[in-house]
Simulated scan of single mutants.
Amino acid sequence: MTTRLPSTGAPDRAVTPGTTCRSDEVVVIHRLFRRLFAEAPALVRGVAPDDTSHAKRVAKHLHGIIALLHVHHRTEDEYFWDVMTDRAPACGLHVELMRRQHGAVSDRLDVADALVDRWAYRADAPTAARIAAELDEVDRLLLEHLADEEREAFPVLDAILSDAEWDDIHKHAQRHKPPMPIFVLLGLMIDSVPESERAAWVAKELPAPIRVAYRTVGRRQYERAIARVRAIGRGAAGASGVVPAMA
């Protein structure tokens, strides 16, 4: 964890006390990424050497979550950092840190993604070990970055962004084609919400038709997809200390 940065000393302008906590919506996404990348190395280590069928399923999952994180960070890059620089110049060091951390995570993701392509068709142990090590580092960097972002950037963004601007960001994010099946992504999202909060979150955030579709069709699709990814990886995940959270 990095230590809290001091401000640049430049005067703030157009910063007023926030009346919304719209960054809480992003925290839900962060919770999903924490979970996905915490378990990703164990999924790779759980594939037996030469089991290319299982490797391809895990590879497809990894490509999906890597693409999802890239899209999330590009959206933040487009909508957050320039407006912070303009409206809260005293936060210049925080913006610099966010950009630097995004770059570091992106570089590691690209390395892992390229290795996954090679490994999917060979399921060889040396490449699997390299992928798992890269994903371990992504997890470490991501945990540091998300904590820094939530502590240093989100209170400022809540103060300087209007509800209309938050709505624009949300609409922009929805325009991207999901890099994995929508019910699988929705299931991952729902299961990343603490169980004690899950029913209330679903009722608040999901329109009734989507709730019905997920309950009648989507949940089974999600569970089958996750079971296929975890086909022979449960023991390895448990041995590594990562609880199989979505089984």
Rank of each mutant, 00 (worst) to 15 (best):
Val229Arg: 00
Gly64Pro: 04
Leu146Thr: 02
Arg151Leu: 15
Val229Gly: 05
Ile210Thr: 13
Leu188Arg: 01
Pro17Arg: 10
Lys56Arg: 15
Lys177Asn: 11
Tyr222Val: 02
Ala88His: 02
Asp168Glu: 14
Ile160Trp: 00
Val242Trp: 02
Leu157Val: 06
Leu206Ser: 03
Glu144Gln: 12
Glu134Gly: 08
Val229Pro: 03
Asp124Arg: 01
Thr20Val: 08
Ile29Phe: 10
Ala88Ser: 09
Leu206Tyr: 01
Phe183Thr: 04
Asp82Ala: 14
Glu165His: 09
Ile160Thr: 03
Val212Ile: 12
Trp201Thr: 02
Val26Gly: 09
Asp117Lys: 09
Gly241Ser: 05
Trp201Asn: 06
His172Glu: 12
Gln101Arg: 13
Asp110Pro: 03
Glu195Asn: 11
Trp119Ile: 01
Glu195Lys: 09
Glu25Trp: 10
Gly233Trp: 03
Val27Ser: 12
Met246Pro: 09
Trp119Met: 02
Arg34Gln: 12
Arg140Leu: 12
Val116Trp: 04
His102Glu: 07
Gly241Thr: 04
Val242Ser: 15
Ile160Arg: 00
Val47Lys: 01
Arg13Leu: 11
Lys177Pro: 07
Lys60Arg: 13
Ala59Tyr: 01
Val44Ile: 07
Ala147Met: 10
Ala231Asp: 12
Val242Ile: 15
Ile29Thr: 11
Asp167Gly: 10
Val242Thr: 14
Val193Cys: 05
His30Tyr: 04
Ala237His: 09
Asp107Tyr: 12
Ile65Leu: 06
Glu25Asn: 14
Ala59Asp: 05
Glu96Asp: 11
Ile160Glu: 00
Glu165Pro: 04
Met189Leu: 10
Arg151His: 15
Glu134Arg: 08
Ala55Met: 05
His172Ser: 10
Cys91Val: 09
Leu97Asp: 15
Arg99Ala: 09
Ile66Arg: 00
Leu206Ala: 02
Arg122Ser: 13
Asp24Phe: 11
Pro181Gln: 09
Arg22Ala: 15
Met84Thr: 02
Glu25His: 13
Val202Gly: 06
Ala133Glu: 13
Ile226Trp: 03
His145Tyr: 09
Asp51Leu: 04
Gly233Gln: 03
His102Trp: 06
Ala245Leu: 12
Pro6Lys: 04
Arg140Glu: 11
Ile169Phe: 07
Trp81Ile: 05
His70Lys: 07
Glu223Pro: 07
Asp86His: 10
His170Pro: 07
Ala125Ser: 15
Arg230Ile: 02
Asp163Thr: 14
Glu134Asn: 10
Leu97Glu: 14
Pro126Ala: 10
Ala59Val: 05
Gly233Leu: 01
Pro209Phe: 01
Leu141Arg: 05
Arg34Leu: 14
Arg122Leu: 07
Ala239Ser: 15
Lys204Gly: 08
Glu195Val: 09
Val138Gln: 03
Met84Val: 10
His70Tyr: 13
